[in-house]
C-alpha cells in the first residue's frame, strides 16, 4: 500500500509492503506529519514556533517536542562547528532538523504498529525499513540536479536514512551562517546516507552550508557517507559511498 499527500508544503509518501496492512496505518502517519507541521511551521501564524518568534510563549511553557527540537538543534550546532544554526537574526527556523526528525518518528510509528517492510519519504528525504515487494533492499535513486528525470546513482539501503540538500529546485534555501550574504553556488546537490534519516538530514543541511568542504567534513564522521555534485557536474564522494551503489548488473 502506497499513498502520497501534500503536507508541510511538500509531498509525503508512505509505502508499506507487509501483508495485511491496516487501512488506518498510513493515515496515522499523515496525521503525525500534520501535527508536526502545526507546531513547527514558520509559515503558519498559529504554530508554536511562530508564537515563540513573536515572543508570545515563554520558554517554560514550550511543549516537550519544542524543547526537544531546540535541544537537538543546539547539539547539532556544536557537532557541526556552528554551521548548523536554526537562529537567523533573532528568529528561529528549525525546519532543517524537524523534517528528518519527523520522518524518523513517523517510521518508528509504523514499527510500533508491527510493520517491518516500509519507507517514509518527505520532500526527497527517506527512512527505509526491511525490503521492497521484490524482496530486495529498497532502491533509491539520487536525482540528477541538472535533469530531474534522471538518476546519477542508484543505492540499495538496509534500515537506513538518506537525505539530499540542494539548490536546484527551490533556489537557495541553505545559507552559510559565517557568510550569510554569500550564496552557496559551488555545490548544487549533497546526498548523505546515515544510520537514520534524522542523522542524514541534519548533516546534509550543515555540510551543504560548508560549500566544497562539506564532503570532507562528512568523510570524517563515522557512519555517514556522502555524494556531492558541484555546478560543473563533477561529483566528490566519501570512501564508503560505493558500498551502497547498486552495480549495473544487479539492476532490476
Amino acid at each position: 500500500m502506497k499513498q502520497t499527500r501534500l503536507i508541510m508544503g511538500m509531498p509525503v509518501t508512505v509505502e508499506i509492503v507487509d501483508k495485511n496492512v491496516h487501512p488506518d496505518s498510513i493515515e496515522k502517519v499523515f496525521d503525525y506529519f500534520q501535527y508536526v507541521d502545526g507546531k513547527f511551521s514558520t509559515y503558519k501564524n498559529t504554530s508554536e514556533i511562530t508564537k515563540i518568534n513573536l515572543g508570545e510563549i515563554k520558554k517554560k511553557d514550550w511543549s516537550p517536542d519544542m524543547k526537544k527540537i531546540f535541544k537537538l538543534s543546539a547539539e547539532t550546532k556544536k557537532q557541526t562547528n556552528g554551521y548548523f544554526n536554526i537562529e537567523q537574526a533573532g528568529f528561529f527556523d528549525p525546519s532543517g532538523i524537524v523534517k528528518g526528525w519527523a520522518i524518523l518518528n513517523a517510521a518508528e510509528l509504523l514499527k510500533k504498529m508491527g510493520y517491518k517492510n516500509y519507507y517514509v519519504e518527505a520532500g526527497g528525504d527517506i527512512q527505509v525499513s526491511g525490503k521492497n515487494n521484490k524482496n530486495q533492499y529498497w532502491r533509491i535513486g539520487i536525482r540528477n540536479p541538472f535533469n530531474r528525470y534522471q538518476n546519477v546513482k542508484i543505492v540499495s539501503l538496509k534500515n537506513r536514512g538518506i537525505a539530499t540538500s540542494g539548490t536546484y529546485i527551490r533556489g537557495q534555501h541553505v545559507y552559510n551562517p559565517y557568510l550569510p550574504k554569500q550564496s552557496i553556488t559551488d555545490v548544487v546537490s549533497l546526498t548523505i546516507i546515515g544510520p537514520n534519516v534524522y542523522e542524514a538530514d541534519r548533516y546534509a543541511t550543515a555540510a551543504f552550508a560548508m560549500g566544497k568542504n562539506g564532503i570532507a567534513f562528512i568523510g570524517k564522521i563515522k557512519g555517514l557517507e556522502g555524494y556531492m555534485i558541484d555546478n560543473k557536474g563533477q561529483a566528490t564522494f566519501t570512501g564508503g559511498f560505493n558500498n551502497y551503489v547498486v552495480h549495473k548488473n544487479e539492476n532490476n
Partner: peptide, 29 residues
C-alpha cells in the same frame, strides 16, 4: 582531525528500477 578519503568522478546517469528518489525538496515543480 583525521583526514577523510574522498574520490571524484564526472556524474553520469544510472538507469535501473528505483522505489524512491532522493533529491532536494521539489514542491515548486
Amino acid at each position: 582531525q583525521a583526514m577523510p578519503y574522498l574520490q571524484q568522478e564526472a556524474i553520469q546517469a544510472q538507469s535501473g528500477n528505483v522505489n524512491i528518489v532522493s533529491g532536494a525538496t521539489d514542491t515548486s515543480r
